[in-house]
Computed example of a mutant assay.
Amino acid sequence: MYQLTFDKAEFLKTTWQKKPVILKGAFKNFQDPISADELAGLAFEEEVSSRIVVTKPEGWDVIHGPFEDYSQYGEQHWQLLVQAVNHWYPESQPMVEAFRFIPDWRFDDLMVSFATPNGGVGPHIDNYDVFIIQGEGRRRWRVGDLGQYQQRDNNPNSPLIEDFVPIIDDILETGDILYIPPGFPHCGETLTTAISYSMGFRAPSQQEVLTELADYFIDNNEGQQRFTSTQEPEMAGVVPTSHQQGIMALLASLANDPQAYQTMLGKLLSKNRFELDVCEIDAEMDAETLIDALEHGAQLLRIGGLKVLCLEGDNQSRLFVNGEMMTMPNSQTDILNTLTQQVSFTAQQATDLISQSIDCVDYFVSMLKQGYYYLSE
């Protein structure tokens, strides 16, 4: 249903993380997977992250959800934004699947916005890649070039910047996509009542990686190697360049040792920023119950937004699921790849995997108990 019309290999080669572009008619015969009323219903839920941005002559007001009533906002100059819709609304999953030519570890979430005429969030810069898909309605988008931009009103905490000179200034209509790499300023203006979809792809910062690495070494009492030297300075108060470099080389040695970083990296990259819609846990679930369900034709489905990853060249046979590690000592690489790649399994597919590796029974039972998978007829 959601098939991209552009050449994905060419896009990755020439455009991805290089330059913004509008892809006209990127989805043919596009249909909104969610309606405005259904989006408003999600924003009513306490667990769902949502906000309303009201455009005013002097700026923007941001009100955080949940929301019960929208009548106070009128018919113009506001926008509702709901994060991680793919976690809570399974019907959005087919659209998410269309973007899996980008690795799962980069995928952040699907944000959906409902905007009234003249609604928008103002000029800003994101630190992640985003595909903005236009659903119902029309929106004008302006995108500027990379550069140094002043934050709005000289406020260092403001997410907004002062205006910019656009290198893209165009109108998105249903099925069009605007791709924006990190660092490019952009601003959207709603021309008619519209629904838009933002597919965000994020990579961890140096700060996040170092923090995670430090926590991992502290928790596991690792990283105990200390700096040693063969030459000392003549002046006691001077730290020689060789000592500075030698101390920092301790970090470089960890970065070049897969055994030191792989567990940390797998956990970090499989974590979700937003809450998952975890299924109710079945206390009776065990291997016998699972196999009986499969024999009666049940399917296994992964909940929306769950990241199941494996690391190429890993020193162990294992998976990383939502920030946790699961060892799979009896499973070959092809089985691990199948478990990461597929988000649903027919009864026959699951049975075949179980017959190939006993680990798969433990994996599926564990996922069901944690509410990360569920059984469907």
Rank of each mutant, 00 (worst) to 15 (best):
71 S>P: 01
169 D>W: 10
183 G>V: 03
21 V>F: 02
155 N>G: 10
277 D>F: 01
317 S>E: 12
208 E>I: 04
81 L>H: 01
113 S>T: 13
344 S>Y: 08
168 I>M: 09
124 H>K: 06
58 E>D: 14
154 N>T: 06
61 D>H: 05
366 S>L: 05
102 I>A: 01
104 D>M: 12
91 E>H: 08
281 I>N: 14
334 D>V: 11
29 N>A: 14
238 V>H: 11
189 E>H: 10
185 P>G: 03
25 G>E: 12
172 L>W: 05
53 V>S: 03
159 P>Q: 08
35 S>R: 08
85 V>T: 06
376 S>L: 06
114 F>G: 03
22 I>W: 02
322 N>D: 15
26 A>E: 00
347 A>N: 14
292 D>H: 13
321 V>F: 10
319 L>A: 07
66 P>Q: 04
10 E>I: 00
200 G>D: 03
312 E>L: 11
197 Y>T: 01
45 E>F: 10
123 P>Y: 07
229 S>V: 12
187 C>W: 13
30 F>W: 07
87 H>V: 03
336 L>I: 13
231 Q>Y: 04
64 H>C: 01
286 D>A: 11
49 S>C: 02
60 W>H: 06
91 E>V: 07
77 H>Q: 11
60 W>C: 01
285 M>R: 05
122 G>P: 06
32 D>A: 07
100 R>M: 09
126 D>C: 07
189 E>D: 13
209 V>I: 15
74 G>N: 05
227 F>G: 08
107 F>N: 01
234 E>Q: 13
297 G>K: 09
99 F>R: 00
360 C>V: 15
91 E>F: 01
188 G>A: 11
169 D>S: 14
126 D>T: 10
80 L>I: 04
143 V>Q: 05
326 M>H: 13
305 G>T: 09
114 F>D: 02
207 Q>Y: 08
183 G>A: 03
52 I>A: 02
124 H>S: 09
103 P>N: 08
254 L>H: 09
310 C>H: 14
346 T>H: 06
307 K>R: 14
35 S>N: 10
185 P>W: 04
143 V>F: 11
324 E>C: 09
141 W>K: 06
232 E>Y: 14
119 G>V: 02
277 D>Y: 00
1 M>I: 02
36 A>S: 12
315 N>M: 12
239 V>F: 11
205 S>R: 09
205 S>D: 08
141 W>G: 05
23 L>K: 04
359 D>H: 06
134 Q>I: 07
109 D>I: 08
328 M>I: 09
